[in-house]
């Protein structure tokens, strides 16, 4: 993912604290909503994402079928009004399995982004704020993590931790720490040269105080934009590892695994893998669209 680093100019407002930014956000909310009305694709994206979050929170509200029990007399029923996504080999409703699978996949995604965001931000903050030898040492390690393609790194980590959805989440998170660290460090380096930081030092605020009160709130915005973008990437990574069979064991519904299960019958019953796969792709496209709108907002 390419991430453009915003120029220090964006954080020009002296000592703009996170709280100040949020009240600004609230005040412009009606304006934002009316802007939203002019972007139908963005609205649809939000609806898709909210519905899928609903799937994850209360799957039984969206489907009356069980994700585990099937009717073996009705195996491989094509998509119909009764079974929106059709049924699989065991006659299980694939829509129900997709709905329940949202919880597995989205929880893993959230965990992955939190791991990457949490650790990456701290590492980048320390590197950028400490400078000197610490900075060089940390950034060389970050280089190494960037040199190994993230899917490969995640595969290695998951093979060491053992196969499970939680470990997939950890592995995906760990493999994205480096990009968060790099963005955070660049932001911190830009913020520490600002006048308000010098002023704070001049007023006698300690290093820790400056870091917590001024550097962190003013460096976070780019990293948050990256986190939004990372959600889509993480869903894909989690599903890819699930597809390769490193996640939840088969009876569990998980989006990548659903596609993998249907793949064996793709020649005769294509919908069994295509329907869950298309649902996954639509969710990723929607998250992508939303995170791009965040980035545009942020750049303004």
């Amino acid at each position: 993912m390419t991430v453009e680093l915003d120029t220090p100019g964006t954080s020009a407002a002296p000592a703009a604290t996170a709280a100040g930014e949020w009240s600004g956000f609230a005040r412009s909310l009606p304006k934002r909503l009316s802007e939203l009305g002019q972007q139908p694709i963005l609205v649809v994206s939000w609806i898709i994402v909210l519905v899928v979050i609903g799937w994850a929170i209360a799957p039984d509200l969206f489907t009356s079928y069980s994700p585990y029990d099937g009717n073996t007399n009705a195996s491989f029923v094509p998509p119909s009004a009764e079974h929106w996504f059709g049924t699989d080999r065991l006659g299980r409703d694939l829509f129900a399995r997709s709905v329940y699978g949202a919880r597995t996949t989205l929880t893993a995604t959230l965990l992955a982004v939190l791991v990457a965001f949490g650790i990456g931000t701290v590492v980048g903050l320390v590197a950028g704020f400490a400078g000197g030898f610490v900075d060089t040492a940390i950034m060389r390690v970050v280089d190494v993590f960037l040199a190994i393609p993230s899917l490969l790194l995640a595969m290695v980590v998951v093979s060491v931790l053992g196969y499970s959805t939680h470990n997939i989440a950890l592995a995906v998170g760990i493999s994205s720490i480096a990009s968060f660290a790099r963005v955070m460090r660049a932001e911190v380096l830009a913020v520490v040269t600002q006048d308000y930081v010098k002023a704070a030092y001049g007023l006698g605020v300690g290093r820790l105080g400056v870091m917590v009160k001024h550097v962190v709130p003013n460096s976070l915005s780019s990293v948050i934009a990256l986190a939004a973008l990372e959600v889509g990437t993480a869903v894909l990574a989690v599903a890819s590892l699930g597809f390769l069979g490193y996640g939840a064991p088969p009876p569990e519904p998980e989006w990548g695994l659903l596609v993998a299960e249907g793949r064996d019958y793709v020649a005769v019953h294509p919908w069994a893998s295509i329907m869950p796969g298309v649902a996954l792709a639509i969710v990723v496209i929607a998250t992508h669209r939303i995170s791009t709108s965040f980035r545009k907002d942020h750049r303004r």
Binding site: S240, R263, I274, L280, A281, H288, R289
Partner: peptide
């Protein structure tokens, strides 16, 4: 382009195969 990076490779593979 953003569609191209959003569609999982295993899905596009299966669709193309199909």
């Amino acid at each position: 382009p953003s569609g191209a990076v959003s569609v999982p490779v295993f899905l596009s593979g299966i669709l193309i195969l199909q």
